[in-house]
Simulated scan of single mutants.
Amino acid sequence: MNYVVVAFFAFFGGILRYLLGVELPIFHLFPIGTLTANYIGCFLFSWLVKQIMVDREINGRLILGVGTGFCGGLTTFSSFALDAVQLLQKQAYLVAFLYLFASIVGGLFFVWLGEAIVKKKVSE
């Protein structure tokens, strides 16, 4: 049954990732769609799944579906890595560095932000 739950939610995460990739422009070779999908996924996984759903003891299958399924389908290491390699192959070294830096630092920032928002609300 867990496979079905993960697959169901992954469908929606994957669709959102696809739409972001199609709708957001590539700016000077910079893959904004992949970056945005990863930022949203990092934030949602930290804020919604790890902080709110677990703290409120939401059903484990729903947490599995939203976390592993939706957030896993939305975020994409393979697209991130492929985008970076393609930038390097095009000898767009500065853009590749900026993309790698923005992806790693930005992803960590959005995980931190999700946790910080929950911690602030708890302390109020």
Score class of each variant (00 low, 15 high):
residue 80 F to K: 06
residue 36 T to W: 04
residue 22 V to L: 11
residue 23 E to W: 08
residue 40 I to S: 11
residue 67 G to H: 05
residue 75 T to D: 01
residue 91 Q to H: 15
residue 98 L to E: 10
residue 6 V to I: 15
residue 116 A to H: 08
residue 113 L to A: 13
residue 119 K to C: 01
residue 101 F to S: 12
residue 68 T to D: 03
residue 17 R to Q: 09
residue 16 L to S: 13
residue 50 K to M: 14
residue 83 D to H: 09
residue 24 L to N: 02
residue 9 F to A: 11
residue 11 F to S: 04
residue 42 C to G: 12
residue 1 M to C: 10
residue 105 V to W: 14
residue 42 C to W: 04
residue 97 F to I: 10
residue 124 E to W: 03
residue 80 F to L: 14
residue 89 Q to D: 06
residue 59 N to P: 03
residue 17 R to G: 07
residue 36 T to K: 06
residue 2 N to L: 12
residue 5 V to G: 00
residue 47 W to I: 12
residue 52 I to S: 03
residue 9 F to T: 07
residue 94 L to Y: 10
residue 77 F to V: 12
residue 28 H to P: 00
residue 25 P to E: 11
residue 55 D to F: 09
residue 9 F to Q: 01
residue 109 F to Q: 00
residue 97 F to A: 15
residue 29 L to A: 12
residue 53 M to A: 01
residue 100 L to C: 11
residue 20 L to M: 11
residue 2 N to V: 09
residue 7 A to V: 10
residue 63 I to Q: 11
residue 27 F to W: 03
residue 81 A to G: 10
residue 124 E to N: 13
residue 64 L to D: 05
residue 14 G to S: 02
residue 24 L to K: 02
residue 101 F to M: 14
residue 6 V to A: 02
residue 37 A to H: 10
residue 43 F to R: 06
residue 124 E to F: 05
residue 3 Y to R: 08
residue 86 Q to G: 11
residue 111 V to Q: 06
residue 5 V to Y: 02
residue 24 L to Q: 00
residue 86 Q to I: 01
residue 86 Q to A: 07
residue 18 Y to V: 08
residue 18 Y to C: 09
residue 33 G to E: 01
residue 107 G to Y: 08
residue 68 T to Y: 00
residue 3 Y to W: 11
residue 100 L to G: 12
residue 69 G to K: 05
residue 118 V to C: 11
residue 107 G to F: 05
residue 48 L to F: 09
residue 56 R to K: 14
residue 61 R to A: 00
residue 95 V to A: 10
residue 32 I to D: 00
residue 24 L to R: 00
residue 78 S to G: 03
residue 6 V to R: 02
residue 78 S to F: 11
residue 84 A to E: 03
residue 100 L to W: 05
residue 108 L to H: 11
residue 47 W to A: 15
residue 61 R to I: 00
residue 32 I to Y: 03
residue 6 V to Y: 01
residue 11 F to G: 01
residue 115 E to V: 05
residue 48 L to A: 10
residue 64 L to G: 02
residue 84 A to I: 01
residue 104 I to L: 14
residue 31 P to V: 02
